[in-house]
Amino acid sequence: MIQCKVIFAGLIKRVVGTSEMTVTLPAGSTLGDLLADLTARFGQEFEDKILLNGDLANHAVVMIDGDYAREVGGMQARLDRQTPAQVEIVLLGPPLLGG
């Protein structure tokens, strides 16, 4: 089993109603498995805010043990690199670039 400490920051905190929690997942679980677990707990609104077409939405930043999920396998990133895993899920605001 994998113990995951999940930290929520940004607008997603309102959806889940807490700033952090611990989730236990089967061995070999991936980020996709974790997000599916969280969607089951917190409902469709959670998924709608984090995912787009089954992948991380542009404004959703997920860090796994300090590494950006997009750079370590995305939804397939494994969560068993350290014990317990620390997953930070940050929902950023809209773009500020441009004129």
Binding site: G10, L91, G99
Partner: peptide, 12 residues
């Protein structure tokens, strides 16, 4: 800052 407070409202 906007993210930390939990708001989606940040703008130029």
């Amino acid at each position: 800052f906007s993210t930390a407070v939990g708001s989606p409202n940040v703008t130029m």
